[in-house]
């Protein structure tokens, strides 16, 4: 395997990590007001995310940084081309991070209510937009060589809102919502868990329908690669297993299967792309691929050493965090749910 292919795989792995981890964050965030009705439940739900959400988001930063380092042309074309969707994602991530940290500082219902709304919207929007973005990447967008060998995005914002992309957005939206519900069912007890399960069973079916249409579109209209078809099939099987495990009340297996589903969706899309990284809808010669978008061999080699040494270490300590906080949480664990640390002045 060439280093270029290797880095294509690494980038895919980083997105897999990101979507499995922040995918459930998004799901939990956007369904917060449904799965948790009172203050004790809301704080319990947020506490399931508390120790991990920031580390989960770093996967995005590393995916972005690694793309910059390994495929600078891809990074430059993608980020300047998908300008407004990425901007909306950035705004959402800013609002979301602050909301988690600040919402429970005061007990006042208006204060908390506003942050809760912020959490719901800022979790839902990226869940939708990442699907839109990736569907567009796979489908191909208007890219053109500017005559100096630089491949630029020449479409507008509305080019990105085509039916296939919107279908992709809805698919990730419901996939993450269900994935988050599986996570909550695994991490909580009592009422919250019951609601999460109820939700997962319903959004799970909707996700299945959307995913099948989306994958059929990908495998029959966009590409005829055999591996893409096999991977799509694995997506469907994994999802069926997830829904089945949920019915049997096996929370751990359901979450595992849904994580595999998320991973397989990313793998399917990257397999459909390969060896392109951003196909052009105008002219195949203007497509960005793992060669014309990449860094030099030297840079890829340096980055390979760094990634090979550091990634296992990161996986070990991040995994350890999940182990430390493995205990299920319920509303009754929250001693004084209506109070915030800033309510009372201690003297």
């Amino acid at each position: 395997m060439s280093l270029n292919s290797f880095w294509f795989v690494i980038i895919a792995v980083l997105w897999i990590g990101y979507f499995i981890l922040e995918g459930f964050d998004f799901g939990v965030g956007m369904t917060l007001k449904y799965v948790a009705k009172d203050q004790a439940e809301r704080r319990a739900v947020l506490t399931t995310l508390g120790p991990v959400w920031d580390g989960n988001e770093v996967w995005l930063l590393v995916a972005g940084g690694a793309t910059f380092a390994a495929f600078p042309e891809w990074y430059a074309t993608l980020f300047s081309g998908f300008y407004l969707p990425l901007f909306l994602i950035l705004v959402s991530l800013i609002v979301r991070g602050v909301s988690f940290e600040y919402r429970s500082k005061y007990g006042k219902p208006e204060w908390r209510g506003r942050w809760d709304n912020a959490i719901v919207i800022s979790s839902a929007l990226p869940a939708l937009l990442w699907g839109v973005a990736f569907a567009n990447i796979v489908k191909g967008v208007p890219l053109k060589d500017n005559g100096h060998g630089v491949i630029e995005y020449v479409g507008g914002f509305f080019n990105l809102l085509n039916p296939f992309a919107l279908l992709g957005g809805l698919t990730t939206f419901f996939l993450f919502a269900t994935h988050g519900a599986f996570f909550l069912a695994l991490k909580t007890r009592g009422e919250i868990r019951a609601r999460a399960n109820y939700l997962a069973a319903r959004t799970g079916l909707l996700t299945a329908v959307l995913a099948v249409i989306f994958l059929a579109w990908t495998t029959f209209k966009l590409t005829s690669k055999t591996d893409v078809r096999i991977f799509s099939l694995v997506v469907v099987v994994a999802w069926v297993l997830a829904l089945g495990a949920q019915r049997l009340g096996r929370d751990g297996w359901a979450f595992l299967a849904s994580s595999v589903t998320v991973a397989m969706v990313v793998i399917t899309l990257f397999a459909a792309l390969y060896p392109n990284v951003m196909p052009s809808s105008l002219d195949p010669a203007s497509s960005l691929n793992i060669f014309n978008a990449s860094s030099t061999h030297y840079t890829l080699k340096v980055m390979t050493y760094v990634a090979v040494v550091l990634t296992p270490i990161v996986l070990i300590y991040q995994g350890w965090t999940y182990w430390v906080f493995r205990k299920r949480i319920s509303a009754t664990d929250i001693a004084s749910p209506n109070e915030g640390v800033l309510d009372k002045i201690h003297l």
């Binding site: 590393v62 972005g64 940084g65 690694a66 910059f68 840079t299 760094v306």
Partner: peptide, 10 residues
């Protein structure tokens, strides 16, 4: 420039 940025993340 990308390399130190990626290292920073990782």
């Amino acid at each position: 420039f990308g390399a130190p940025l990626a290292m920073e993340g990782l």
